[in-house]
Amino acid sequence: MTTIAKQSPPGIITGAAGYAHAGAWILGLAAAWDAASGIGDTHTDIAAAYVDRPAQAVPQALLVHGVAAACLAVVGSGVLSRARRSGSLTACVAGWAGIVVAALACVQLALELVAILGADPSSSRGGGALFETVLRTDGAKMLTLAMFAAATCTASRRDALLRLWEVVSGWALGAALSPRP
């Protein structure tokens, strides 16, 4: 039987960090809406975008990868702490997945800041190669985030970690981020 939290779920800080993650991610995307490089851009185009718009690219990286990573680390640690108390293997998997997502976001932050601050449009590789690495890391992060969402929703069936609308949103997130055949 599914148990859904009727009141605030335990861990106000964990819940607030989850919402802060979403907020930081949305603000980060908004900060560089027209400045972000596209997947089909050449390495020179990517470096030029970084050189032309560092005032947008740096805050975007800090919000999307930095603040979001810190928030996900708090959420993952909170779920892991709950797993230890309840003995839930699924919650343990969810907690560790959240921590791995945070670690991957930190790697993205470091790579993107190096790419932005060291961008040289006259270089044939430079920032473009780092941007490609950021995108590949993002793929792994999104897959792990889908696993985190699914495992947290599954653990919530037993431990009442989430409210009903959060469970529905979590399953939708997991489905949206999962790879398609």
Rank of each mutant, 00 (worst) to 15 (best):
A47L: 01
L72M: 15
A91C: 09
S37C: 08
G18V: 07
T144Y: 06
D138T: 12
G76V: 08
S77D: 09
H21E: 12
G78F: 08
S86T: 15
S81M: 12
M147S: 12
A22D: 09
C92G: 13
G128Q: 04
T144G: 07
V58Y: 00
P9W: 04
T42V: 06
D45R: 02
T133C: 09
G18A: 07
A70K: 02
G66K: 03
A176Q: 08
A68H: 01
S86H: 07
G95W: 05
G15M: 10
G23Y: 06
D41N: 10
L143M: 13
A129H: 07
K141N: 09
V114G: 01
S88P: 06
A22S: 13
A97L: 14
V79E: 04
L89C: 09
E112V: 02
D52K: 00
W96V: 12
L130E: 01
G128T: 05
R136N: 11
G118C: 03
C106N: 09
T152Y: 06
T152V: 10
H21Q: 11
Q108I: 02
P59E: 01
A69V: 04
G18W: 07
C106W: 10
A155Y: 06
A47G: 01
T144R: 08
S124F: 10
H21T: 11
S81C: 08
A31V: 01
L80E: 09
I4H: 08
G78P: 10
W25S: 05
V64I: 15
L72P: 04
I39E: 15
A140R: 08
P10D: 15
G66L: 03
G118I: 02
P59A: 02
L109Q: 04
R163M: 13
T154P: 04
V107C: 12
D52N: 06
S156W: 07
R158M: 09
S88Y: 09
L27C: 05
S8M: 14
V114N: 01
R84A: 12
H21F: 15
I116Y: 00
F131A: 11
A110F: 11
T133N: 07
P9Q: 08
E132N: 15
L72I: 05
R136V: 11
V134S: 02
E132R: 13
A35C: 03
V75Q: 06
S81W: 10
V107R: 07
V168S: 14
A22K: 12
I13M: 13
G23W: 07
A20Y: 06
L130G: 00
V51S: 00
E112C: 03
A36T: 00
A22I: 14
A115N: 01
G139V: 10
L29M: 13
H65P: 02
V134M: 05
A160W: 08
D45L: 01
I46W: 03
K6F: 10
V101N: 06
V101T: 11
S88T: 09
A69L: 03
W165V: 12
A70I: 15
S8Y: 14
L117R: 03
S8E: 14
W33S: 03
A17R: 04
G15E: 10
G128M: 05
V100T: 15
R84G: 13
Q60E: 09
